[in-house]
């Protein structure tokens, strides 16, 4: 109940954090994203759902310009963050990615200590002036990643030694450590067991206080549990976008309805 009230406030009062206009994305000749227009709100969890291969990851990766690392990938249209075109010539994708953090499907901690995993981003971007400050950032990030209590006694041990769920929360903490404004999550729970999934979902709800969160998920229940807005993608098109409650109870497009009721998978 509390959530819903929150949501109504957000949706009505907020200006969009990210605006995509006429976005087309191609992998060589494969037209993966077709004319997508969308406005993502701040302090909101937005879920991207849709069948496999419909372009959810592709569109997500366009938001922090991760597609730049793929040679054959080409984009048209504009995406703005707080009104600034992120594909403008002057924008450094490397700095953009510090503001738009990303969490991947498979937990990918670096083969370094837990501490160094978290400190990686802050060190690169010079966010800490002293060791004490860095310690503070690490602790704060691990707390926000809801993993502090489990690892506080073994910060010097390798992050790869944690369990899958812990690794994923470590990766979320790592993304949070660079103080991003937007957090992109590509199927963050698909490699996790139900308990770890629940922990990560709680964490997402927490994170929403501070960031705009976009989560790609294959689980309709998960989308319904954590998100306030949902976008349904189909064959590269954004078919329907709206309040999560409405999409799940009363979708407008028959394709959305088919997907939600399990007729497209």
């Amino acid at each position: 109940m509390d959530d819903v009230r929150h949501l109504e406030n957000d949706v009505t009062t907020q200006t969009p954090k990210i605006t995509a206009t006429g976005v087309q994305i191609y992998y060589a000749d494969n037209h993966a994203i077709k004319d997508v227009n969308v406005e993502i709100l701040d302090k909101t969890v937005t879920a991207f759902i849709g069948p496999s291969g419909c372009g959810k990851s592709t569109f997500l990766r366009a938001i922090n310009r991760m597609n730049d690392t793929i040679d054959i990938c080409r984009m048209e249209g504009t995406i703005t963050l707080d009104g600034q075109d992120i594909y403008a010539p002057g924008v450094d994708p490397v700095q953009l990615r510090a503001k738009v953090g990303m969490v991947f499907q498979k937990p990918n901690p670096f083969p370094k200590s837990i501490y160094d995993n978290i400190a990686y981003g802050p060190r690169i971007h010079g966010l800490a002036a002293s060791k004490a400050e860095l310690d503070e950032i690490v602790e704060k990030s691990l707390r926000r990643g809801a993993i502090w209590d489990e690892v506080k006694d073994r910060l010097d041990q390798p992050g790869t030694g944690l369990s899958g769920g812990q690794q994923q929360r470590l990766c979320i903490a790592r993304a949070v450590a660079t103080a991003p404004e937007v957090l992109l999550m590509d199927e963050p729970c698909s490699a996790l067991d139900p308990i770890a999934t629940e922990q990560v979902e709680e964490l997402i709800t927490e994170l929403r206080q501070n960031f705009a969160v976009i989560i790609v998920t294959h689980s309709m229940q998960q989308a319904a549990r954590v998100s306030q807005k949902t976008a349904y993608f189909h064959l590269g098109n954004l078919v329907e976008y709206g309040e999560t409650g409405k999409i799940f109870t009363n979708p407008e497009d028959p394709r959305t309805e088919n997907y939600i009721t399990g007729r497209i998978g």
Partner: peptide
């Protein structure tokens, strides 16, 4: 995935390679 993780945090290619 390790490289992606590093790029995703805003590291450059050289930083990713070295670190």
């Amino acid at each position: 995935s390790l490289r992606d993780g590093s790029y995703g945090l805003g590291a450059t290619k050289a930083e990713t390679m070295r670190q």
